[in-house]
């Protein structure tokens, strides 16, 4: 059973308080009507299933009811970081030890995270 740090509550809490909501950073296309059927199908149905570092959307359902992101290793189940909506992960498959400082300054988008 996972032990998850809620970035809004500032505490590590039991998994029973959370619901997983699938892959993180799936932004809804800004103009759905301009999407081709294939693009819309990609948004709706296609998700990554990596072995290793994965970014997931979770909600602190029995708690503050806030959604946030989790960087989790799908092999070891280790949670490497959690971060609020609109923030970017510092640990990624490309940078498993954490991104260089300048890269984190990239513009962040709030349009993150819903799955169909």
């Amino acid at each position: 059973m996972l032990h998850i740090y809620c970035p809004y509550c500032g505490e590590t809490r039991e998994e029973e308080e959370f619901h997983p909501k699938g892959q993180a950073h799936i932004a809804r296309p800004a103009d759905p009507e301009a999407c081709s059927d294939e693009e819309w199908g990609d948004y709706l149905f296609f998700r990554d299933n990596p072995r290793g570092i994965h970014h997931e959307l979770w909600v602190h359902a029995v708690g503050c009811r806030k959604f946030f992101n989790v960087t989790r290793n799908t092999v070891t189940y280790e949670i490497l970081e959690t971060y609020k909506m609109g923030e970017r992960p510092t640990i990624t498959a490309e940078h498993p030890e954490g991104r260089p400082a300048d890269a984190t300054a990239q513009q962040t988008s709030l349009r993150d995270g819903v799955r169909a």
Partner: peptide
């Protein structure tokens, strides 16, 4: 939860 996820993740404005 459905209303919240859209509000919190897509349309916080």
């Amino acid at each position: 939860e459905w209303l919240e996820i859209w509000h919190q993740t897509e349309w916080p404005e």
